[in-house]
Simulated scan of single mutants.
Amino acid sequence: MILLIRSLFKQVRKPVLAYAIGTSLYLLMLALLYPSMMKTGLLEAKLEALPPEVLKAFQYDKVTGFENVLDLLGGNYYGLIFQVIASLFLLSLAARLVARPIDNGELIVYLAAPITRNAYTFAVAIVMGIASIVLVGLNGLVLMVSDWWMTDISINDVILWRIQLNALLLLLAIGAFTLFVATLFDEERRAFSLAGSVLVLSIVLTILSELSDKTEWLRYLSVFSLFNTTQLLEGTNHFLLHSILLLVLCLVFLTGAVVQFGRRSLSI
C-alpha cells in the first residue's frame, strides 16, 4: 500500500506543488503589501469604487476597517478565489489518478499486480488527502512566517488555523466527491464534465445567494456554504457544525467511491 501511495503521489507531485507554492506566494504577496495598503488607504478606496454586486460576488463583507490581514484575505483569497482553486485542484487530481487511468487502460497495470480495487481507491483517497494537507499547510505556514517577520499584520494563530482546518475539510469533501464521480465513468471527459458542472453550479449558487436577501437560501444548496470565512473570523459557533457536515460528506462519498469502483465492470 505504501509503495502504491508513493507511486500515485509521484504522478501528481508537480501539480500539487505548483498549486501549493503558487497560492502561498500569492498569500505572501498580500501579507507583505497589507501594511502599506492600510497606511495609504488605497485598498479601501478601490474597494469602495467597485459595484456592490462585484464585492458580494467575491464575498467581501466589508470594504473598510480591516483589523488584520485575515480580514483582507477573507474576500481576497478565502472566498470565490479559493472555491475556484479548490475545484480545479481536486478535479485535476481525480482525473489524473482515476478517470485517466481507466480511460487509457493504465489501471490494468495496477490491478494485474496484487492490488485490489478497494486498495487502489483508498490509496487515491490518501494521496488526495496528502495533497490537500500540503496545499492548506503551506498556505498557513506562509502566513505564520509573514506574521513573525512583520509587525503590522497581526494574525491570530487560532483563527488562522481554524480557517485552515475548515478549508482542509472542504477539500477532503470535494476530493471524495470528485473521486466518486471519477469511478462512475470509463471516459475521463465525462467524469470531468459532471464533477466540474456540479462544482461550478455550487459556486454560482454561492454567488447568487449574496446578491439579495430573497436568494440567500440558495447558499444552503452549495457545499461552499460550509466554509464561511466571515463566520470564522467572527468566531461564531458554526465552525464545529460545518466541520462535522464536511467530514460526513467526505465519508459518504468515499464509501460510495469504494462500493461503486468495487462492483462495476471496467472496459479496460
Rank of each mutant, 00 (worst) to 15 (best):
M1Y: 09
I2S: 13
S7R: 15
S7N: 14
L8V: 01
F9E: 05
K10L: 13
K14H: 09
K14N: 12
P15Q: 03
L17I: 13
L17T: 10
S24D: 09
S24M: 06
S24C: 05
L25E: 04
Y26M: 11
M29N: 10
L32R: 11
L33R: 13
L33Y: 12
L33K: 13
L33C: 07
Y34Q: 10
P35L: 15
M37N: 04
M37E: 09
M38A: 05
M38E: 13
K39T: 14
G41E: 11
L42C: 00
E44W: 09
K46M: 11
L50H: 11
P51R: 12
E53Q: 14
L55Q: 10
K56C: 04
Q59N: 07
D61C: 03
V63I: 15
V63C: 12
T64N: 10
G65I: 07
E67Q: 11
E67I: 01
Y77A: 05
Y78V: 02
L80H: 06
I81L: 15
I81N: 03
I81P: 05
Q83K: 11
V84D: 08
S87A: 12
L88E: 09
L90N: 06
L91T: 01
A95Q: 10
A99R: 01
D103P: 02
N104Y: 02
N104W: 04
N104I: 06
L107F: 05
V109F: 15
Y110T: 07
L111M: 03
I115M: 07
R117H: 02
Y120T: 01
F122C: 05
A125T: 08
G129A: 12
S132Y: 04
V134F: 08
L135M: 12
L138K: 06
N139I: 01
L141K: 09
L141W: 13
V142C: 07
D147S: 07
I153F: 06
S154G: 11
S154W: 12
N156T: 08
D157P: 14
W161M: 02
N166C: 02
L168G: 01
L170M: 07
T178V: 12
L179D: 07
L179W: 07
A182C: 07
T183S: 06
D186H: 12
E187F: 02
E187G: 00
E188H: 01
A191N: 13
A191Y: 06
S193T: 15
S193K: 13
A195W: 01
G196V: 02
S197A: 13
S197V: 01
V198L: 07
L199Q: 11
S202E: 13
I203A: 05
V204S: 05
V204H: 07
I207C: 01
I207A: 00
E210G: 02
L211W: 15
D213R: 09
K214L: 04
L218G: 10
R219M: 09
Y220Q: 04
S222M: 09
S222Y: 02
V223P: 04
S225C: 01
F227W: 05
N228C: 06
T229P: 01
H238F: 08
H242Y: 08
I244K: 12
L251P: 10
V252H: 10
L254E: 10
T255E: 05
G256L: 14
A257G: 06
V259N: 10
F261N: 06
S265E: 15
L266S: 14
L266V: 15
I268F: 15
I268T: 14
